[in-house]
Design a protein around this nucleic acid. Structure first.
Lengths: 242, 242
DNA sequence: TGTTGTGAAGAGGTTCACAGCG
DNA sequence: CGCTGTGAACCTCTTCACAACA
């Protein structure tokens, strides 16, 4: 293997999430002036193992130098390309309520090539208001506007009872991706990629973990005793993160 | 097996997420007056298979009636118990910015036994302001307050550069769970359960999916041709959701 | 020497398929 | 007869362990 042709691999969603994390760490490292970073370092920051980091990257090519690690700048470029961040993604936010507003002003968007091109709502009292250079538009214009402005992703931040209808509208507008913040399970036609963030579920996962913490701890103690392995690094309070 | 003793099973996080979804569907079904529901129905709503639904539930006991399905009311009770929703969870929100405010007013909290008992910030201009019956407190009081009020979960909604320090503070306050909305990977001591929601990652997962959509579709076509299996139900636009 | 890249082994989660029961 | 509950098969992701190499 040598330099990689980062196109279209079948890879687990969890792996994509890790790649996104690695990219963030690398950007930090770059800011701090580090030139190279090892898989072990990335593993420590991300709460995985160095083997996992190397496997994740190896799917797309060979980015490291043996004995040295990965050149920060090179790996950043590669990961951006892999994650599809080499281009601009045009976003519309649908729903100008609390969450929609918060999202519209989220600085992280522009930094990473995501441009918010419009905000929509169906509430007449909100339509026309200016926000950070954007005028809130009537959601009934969405389909028409989209034909012209071709947004790639719609961030859905409307109340639960409007969410499916709005998603249908987004699909009709031929917007290929939805990031849904409404606490409902949306059904979208094939060809629309859906990603949901559900507060209720996140809280319930926490609730489950807390309620079963004592039992977990007992188990963890037993298994931790026998887990001082070779390559291994890490060990945080608890798993996961996004 | 008969009625179940829903305590402390080792189960995948993905399974917990599905249980949370099932609970939501069941509550809907209850509202619509349905008395029973089959695993196939739950599968259709949640985008899985009926076998998956049955497996998920079977870990905790036998809740269904053969030939009939699951009694909605009974399964709701069981799932609430399993997910640890049988009790009140006391939440503090740390960070009274856009996101913090939006979350504080999120109606879904109280519905499911999560009570917001306080909001904190470090910005003098925000401290003292009233929101929906809660006064914004100085975050420097958090540790002291927590000793008295014993919150279970902290929702972390501060800027990225303050997030780790704030998480440390939360850990010192002996709050056992953190739901983190700051776009950084937090490191917490053992005994603190961390759950993160990261907009940047969610967007990048979407970005990856959209950038590789054509390749995915080719693969999906091939595999879909040979997937008209027995028990199987479902088939939505795209996988996942929360 | 230090660290990558990777085949092979291992774990863990999902799907199958059918016996069991209402 | 219909639908659940579940062992077994299957598959996917993770971890191991080591050869390759700067």
């Amino acid at each position: 293997m040598s330099h990689a042709a980062p196109a279209a691999k079948r890879i687990a969603q969890s792996a994509v999430r890790r790649l996104s994390l690695y990219l963030r760490f690398l950007e930090d490292a770059d800011d701090r002036g580090l030139a190279t970073v090892s898989s072990q370092e990335l593993a420590r920051l991300g709460g995985t193992t160095s083997a996992q980091v190397r496997k994740d990257l190896s799917v797309f090519g060979s980015f490291g130098k043996r004995g040295l690690g990965y050149t920060v700048a090179e790996l950043i470029t590669a990961l951006r390309e892999i994650l599809g961040l080499g281009r601009e993604w045009r976003i519309v936010i649908v729903g100008a309520g609390k969450i929609g507003t918060a999202l519209a002003q989220y600085a992280g968007f522009r930094q990473r090539g995501f441009t918010v091109i419009a905000v929509y709502d169906n509430d007449a009292s909100k339509i026309g208001i200016q926000w950070a250079g954007l005028t809130v538009r009537d959601v009934s214009q969405l389909e028409l506007d989209a034909a012209r402005e071709r947004p790639d992703i719609a961030v859905l931040a409307v109340p639960a009872d409007r969410a499916q209808a709005t998603a249908d509208c987004i699909a009709r507008a031929h917007i290929g991706g939805i990031l849904n913040f409404a606490p409902v399970q949306l059904h979208v036609p094939a060809g629309v990629t859906l990603q949901s963030v559900n507060m209720a579920t996140e809280l319930e996962v926490l609730s489950y973990a807390l309620a079963n913490r004592d039992a977990e701890e007992l188990r963890d103690q037993k298994s931790e005793a026998s887990s001082q392995r070779s390559d291994r690094t890490v060990a945080r309070g608890t798993k996961r993160s996004g």
